[in-house]
Design a protein around this nucleic acid. Structure first.
Length: 222
DNA sequence: AAGTTTTCCAACCGCGTACGC
DNA sequence: GGCGTACGCGGTTGGAAAACT
C-alpha cells in the first residue's frame, strides 16, 4: 500500500483562502517552482505539496488565460483529442495559457456533450451509425460559454460539416493567435515518421516556435 | 419565493514514471 | 538492478452557482 503523499493531520483541504494563495504566490515568486514536497512548510502553508502544485499550476500561475474558450481553441481541442486521446497535458500544451485541468473540464462539460448531440462518438470522433435521440434545438455549434443556450437555428441540416466537426475541417480561421498548425518538425533533418511516444521525444521542437515540454512526434498533413 | 435539479469547475485521489541513492 | 521518493497526469468527486419547476 502506497504511503499517502502527506499525513492527513493538520493539513488543510478544500478551497484555498486568499491568504493561502498569497503565501504560495509570494513563495514561488521568490524561490521558483519545484520542490513541492518541502514547499508548504517553507511557505508556511498547511497543505500538502501536491495540493500546492495543483493550485499554482491550475490557478495562480501568472500566464494563465481565464475565461471562455475561443471557437478556434475549441476546434483545436477537438482535433488534438482526436489525435491524442485523453492526454490533456499534451493538448493543453498546445493552447497557450490553458491548463490540462481546464481543458479536461471543458471537454467533459461542453465539447463531449456537443459531439454526442451531433451524433459523433467523442471517444473515436467518428459519426455514430445511429445518432442519439435527436435534439434539434441544441445540436448546433454555439459560441463557447453559451453551451446551454439552445437557440433555435434556422438551418442546421448539415450538422457534420460545421466548424466543430473535428477531423473534416482542416481549414480553420486562424483569426486569433492560437496555433492551429499541427505539423511538428524535428530540429534537424526531415522527419518522416509518425509516432506517438512522449517518453522518447522529450525535446522535440514544434514548428510554431513554442517550446513545450513533452510533445509527441506528430506529422500531420492537411 | 422556495425547493429541486443540473451544470460547472476547483480540488482531491491514486497510479505510473522519472530520478537519485 | 532494486528500492524509495517526488512529481506529473488523468479520472473522479464535492459543492457552489445557475437554471428550472
Amino acid at each position: 500500500m502506497r504511503k499517502p503523499c502527506c499525513d492527513k493531520q493538520g493539513i488543510n483541504k478544500g478551497a484555498w483562502s486568499k491568504q493561502e494563495d498569497q503565501k504560495l504566490i509570494d513563495y514561488v515568486k521568490e524561490h521558483g517552482e519545484g520542490c513541492w514536497r518541502s514547499l508548504p512548510k517553507a511557505a508556511g502553508l498547511h497543505r500538502c505539496g501536491k495540493s500546492c502544485r495543483l493550485r499554482w499550476i491550475n490557478y495562480l500561475r501568472p500566464d494563465i488565460k481565464r475565461g471562455n474558450f475561443a471557437q478556434d481553441e475549441e476546434d483545436l481541442i477537438i482535433k488534438l483529442h482526436a489525435l491524442l486521446g485523453n492526454r490533456w497535458s499534451l493538448i493543453a500544451g498546445r493552447l497557450p495559457g490553458r491548463t490540462d485541468n481546464e481543458v479536461k473540464n471543458y471537454w467533459n462539460s461542453h465539447i463531449r456533450r456537443r459531439l454526442i448531440n451531433m451524433g459523433i462518438d467523442p471517444n473515436n470522433h467518428k459519426l455514430n451509425q445511429i445518432p442519439p435521440r435527436p435534439q434539434p434545438q441544441c445540436d448546433s455549434v454555439v459560441p463557447s460559454g453559451s453551451t446551454d443556450a439552445c437557440k433555435p437555428k434556422s438551418d442546421n441540416s448539415d450538422r457534420v460539416s460545421d466548424s466543430t466537426s473535428c477531423l473534416d475541417d482542416e481549414t480553420t480561421t486562424g483569426s486569433s493567435n492560437v496555433n492551429l498548425d499541427l505539423t511538428m518538425a524535428f530540429p534537424s533533418p526531415s522527419p518522416t515518421l509518425v509516432e506517438e511516444n512522449p517518453q522518447s521525444t522529450e525535446s522535440m521542437m514544434v514548428t510554431s516556435g513554442q517550446e513545450r515540454e513533452s510533445v509527441p512526434t506528430l506529422l500531420l498533413f492537411s
